[in-house]
């Protein structure tokens, strides 16, 4: 067993299987949640539900998160806001606008898109990694968070952190040979794909549903968001 063959396994059959498990698992989660049932709506609407959903998405995702002082999260706990913000921004920019990741999408979807220059992605990735470290330290220091954190929370942190760190290291050829880091990167990504449907990292999908439902409720009740 050489690093090359381990890498081939991680990029080939394991990734293939993990991806299919991910798709099956996320659909399972989605169907079970959607089928939980809706309570009957007996109250007349005060405003537009659809408008509420649109506002919730546009303002709630694209505007408010970038203006710290309107967020209660920030005024109550700036560390969570900054660490979480850096992490999510770095992660999504790297996954969607980093050249190597775009090539993954291209190979799966059949089309690609322009990417950001490496130095830009790089700094955001560093921000993401620092954000994750801030979140971990905070989780250990904050007494409430510490009490409600079990192995599942730390594992979720780890399975996201390892791909990020190995990805950064391989981009810059740090400490280990490229194919060694690439192998670790791929194994951790494969594990992540399997772990997402089984854990709360699945919030990446449910987040949009809860946003839609909250927006709908806001719109219905005429609440301005």
């Amino acid at each position: 067993m050489t690093w090359q063959s381990a890498l081939e396994f991680a990029r080939g059959p394991l990734f293939y299987g993990a991806l299919l498990f991910f798709i099956a698992g996320m659909l399972y989660r989605l169907v079970t949640v959607v089928a939980l049932g809706w309570s009957k709506d007996r109250v007349p609407d005060k405003g537009s539900k659809a408008g509420g959903v649109v506002r919730s998405f546009l303002k709630g995702i694209l505007i408010w998160p970038f203006i710290p002082w309107v967020k209660n999260t920030f005024s109550r706990n700036p560390l969570i806001y900054i660490g979480g913000g850096l992490f999510h921004l770095g992660l999504f920019v790297t996954i969607l606008l980093g050249t190597p990741h775009m090539l993954v999408w291209k190979s799966l979807l059949g089309f690609g898109w322009p990417t950001l220059p490496l130095p830009v992605v790089d700094w955001l990735a560093v921000g993401g990694i620092i954000g994750m470290l801030i979140l971990l330290v905070h989780r250990r220091i904050n007494p409430v968070l510490r009490l409600i954190s079990g192995p599942a929370e730390y594992l979720a942190w780890l399975v996201v952190f390892v791909p990020m760190v190995t990805g950064y290291m391989m981009t810059h050829h740090l400490f280990f040979r490229y194919e060694v880091l690439y192998t670790f990167h791929m194994f951790s990504v494969d594990f992540l794909l399997i772990w997402i449907p089984l854990s709360r990292i699945s919030h990446f999908m449910f987040y949009f549903f809860s946003r839609a439902i909250h927006g709908q409720q806001f719109g219905k009740r005429g609440v301005r968001v």
């Binding site: 990734f15 293939y16 090539l103």
Partner: peptide, 14 residues
């Protein structure tokens, strides 16, 4: 993997 496919791409496309 494909000769003209980026190295980051998975070896098999489902």
């Amino acid at each position: 993997g494909g000769f003209y496919q980026g190295q980051s791409a998975p070896l098999e496309r489902p």
